[in-house]
Computed example of a mutant assay.
Amino acid sequence: MLLSDRILSANDAVLNRMLKHRFVADIQVGGLDKEVFHRYLAYEGQFVETAISIFAFATIKAPDITARRWLIGVQDALANTQVPYFEEIFARRGIVVADSMPLAVTAFDAGMLDIARAGSFLDVLTAMFAAEWMYWTWCRNTNSAQITDLDLRAWVDMHTATGFADQALWLKQAIDTYGAETDGDRLCAIFDQVTQLEIDFHTAAYRDTAQIEGS
């Protein structure tokens, strides 16, 4: 069994919990509250900037120029495509992000950065694999849903587009390519940790009512 498939198999239960999260389910039935979507966008927009740092750590730790080239391209897309996307949608929808964030959101950012700083190249890849494989999977499962909010529709479409699919598949393949001598149990644990953080991150959009204006 490929290492990436072993990681996915070991984490099937926790991944399914995320794939069945209320946030996903609400989108699939066309019932995601606008306020929840706005809060979620605020949290996710902040994480995009964190992700640039995470991939910078991965670039430094990459074992060869092939991986570095790919990862530099990821950072470029985050900085020059994703960040402007959030700037535009925040301005258009009147979303004003508060200075403080819920604990689950800051814990996600901090947890991911801790892995990037202290972990190996494969640790960082696995952390982002957990996040991006989850997004690619639930958005593919949701692609046929009747979504009337055009921005939410675009968000789902973005995560099923070729560019995002290529990134999720690259992470999976890179784990197999560079992970032949790696402790698979450690990577399975990282995937579990990140998915748990993702569950709490998405739940925070329902719990919090005071962190963002413009809802």
Rank of each mutant, 00 (worst) to 15 (best):
A168R: 01
Q146C: 07
L171N: 06
D192N: 14
L169I: 14
E213F: 00
R207F: 01
I65N: 12
A116Y: 06
L103W: 11
F57M: 14
S144M: 10
Q46A: 13
T50A: 10
K61W: 01
I7W: 01
F164D: 02
V29K: 15
V14Q: 09
E213I: 08
Q173L: 11
S215Y: 09
D149S: 06
G45T: 09
Y178R: 04
A205N: 00
D157G: 06
R39P: 00
F47S: 09
R153Y: 08
I89Y: 02
M18S: 12
F23E: 00
G214E: 01
K61N: 09
F47I: 08
G111P: 08
A131V: 10
V24S: 13
L32E: 04
T142I: 02
Y85N: 09
F191M: 13
D166C: 08
F108C: 02
A62Y: 03
L187I: 04
S9W: 13
T137G: 04
V124N: 09
T160N: 07
I212P: 01
H159F: 07
K20P: 00
D185L: 12
A67Q: 09
A205F: 00
D176S: 04
R6M: 14
R186K: 12
D33H: 11
A25S: 11
Q193V: 13
I147W: 02
T126V: 04
F121E: 03
F90D: 00
A210S: 11
Q173R: 13
S215V: 14
S215M: 10
E213T: 14
V96I: 14
L171F: 08
A110H: 11
I27T: 06
A180F: 14
T148K: 15
C188A: 14
S4A: 13
A67S: 15
K34F: 03
V96T: 15
N80S: 10
M101S: 10
H38K: 10
F55R: 05
K20I: 01
R6E: 15
I115F: 09
A62W: 02
T162M: 09
N11G: 06
P63G: 03
A145T: 03
S53I: 12
T126A: 03
D114V: 00
L19C: 04
R153M: 06
N80E: 09
F129S: 06
T209Y: 05
F121Q: 03
L197T: 08
D109Y: 11
T59N: 13
S9R: 13
K34A: 10
E198R: 11
D166Y: 10
A165E: 13
R17L: 07
D183F: 07
D109T: 13
L3V: 05
E132W: 00
D157E: 15
F129Q: 07
A204K: 00
L8R: 07
W133D: 11
